[in-house]
Design a protein around this nucleic acid. Structure first.
Lengths: 175, 175
DNA sequence: GTACCTGCAAAGTCTTTGCTCATGT
DNA sequence: ACATGAGCAAAGACTTTGCAGGTAC
């Protein structure tokens, strides 16, 4: 739900005054969900909207503090939890003990973690979910969600078309 | 886990003296790796060998304490870490913050967690790993390891045609 | 004006570790 | 004997929470 495409501009059916314009993409989602937009939340929402990676709380706190030092780490924790409950954020666990976050996206995608550098590459695979759904049903379950992470090491003979790092929404796979 | 068919008895090719006979399957693995077998480790090894599920440290501690109260939770932590490093155990994270353990197995298998009860069902899929390996290579990586977990909810219309293709023993005590 | 937020620090969880005594080989 | 393991409790890492004052709507 909430495809950001049409809800960004065309969605201005509301009494969208100038206030909305200062909101980041995630900030707008917060507003839509009726969340009270405090200065801190606005900053955190902006950081999350701008994030191209999968920051953990500490990193979010660092980036948010850079924009506005009047933010405590407790607020970051509370905010990400809130946004996760609202479905705006998704919590990830790539190992290492700390939770990492990224904006919820429409197209499901997965992560490949470089075991040497820790870099995360995203990729998609339309077949995969269907396959897993079938397996779950075979076992007598309805698939609710899943977790898939690949851990790999860079190949020398690069045949991947410059999949630099995170081919976000780029459908990393060429096939 | 561990098809108890052939590895338990026929495996006695070694100089198995009477000492070995008191060891559980995992206990024997410990001995093979040259680990000092203390009473505590023997008990923990037995608990792990007998476990049909994926206990967390607290649960291991509980079961081990039942067999021998002279065990501290610190020892359980130290032992599972040691066994994990030795490749005898594998640590799992099914969400919920605590690590869970199971004996390393040859045939790779995956887990489906019942989101309502927390019950874990294991399943296999030979194709899956190959598929993931191909995806990783496409992205320029050599697949080192992966993590796959399905979260599902029981279907009403009980079908689960049992031996469809890869329905590994469904973990005892299935509610 | 009120319900909800925030900062701060204390408390919680899960896990590791320092130290000293005990034990396996 | 000696290196290694175990107990205990304190410390760590990450996250949540109680409380008093602030703030969005």
């Amino acid at each position: 739900m909430t495809p950001p495409q049409n809800s960004s501009q065309a969605r201005s059916v509301h009494v969208v005054s100038s206030a909305d314009s200062q909101e980041s993409r995630i900030g707008r989602l917060c507003v839509e969900r009726g969340l009270k937009m405090t200065g801190q939340r606005r900053v955190i929402a902006r950081v999350l909207s701008d994030a191209e990676d999968h920051p953990d709380v500490e990193e979010l706190y660092r980036r948010a503090s850079a924009l506005d030092p009047r933010i405590s780490v407790a607020t970051v924790y509370r905010t990400v939890r809130l946004l996760e409950e609202k479905g705006i954020l998704e919590r990830r666990d790539f190992g290492g003990g700390r939770a990492r976050y990224e904006a919820s996206e429409h197209g499901r995608h997965y992560h490949l973690i470089d075991v040497d550098s820790g870099k995360v590459t995203e990729f998609e695979d339309e077949e995969h979910e269907a396959l897993m759904r079938r397996i779950a049903e075979r076992l007598g379950f309805e698939l609710v969600s899943m977790r898939l992470e690949l851990f790999g090491r860079r190949l020398k003979q690069a045949d991947a078309p410059a999949a630099t790092k995170k081919a976000k929404r780029g459908k990393g796979s060429a096939r």
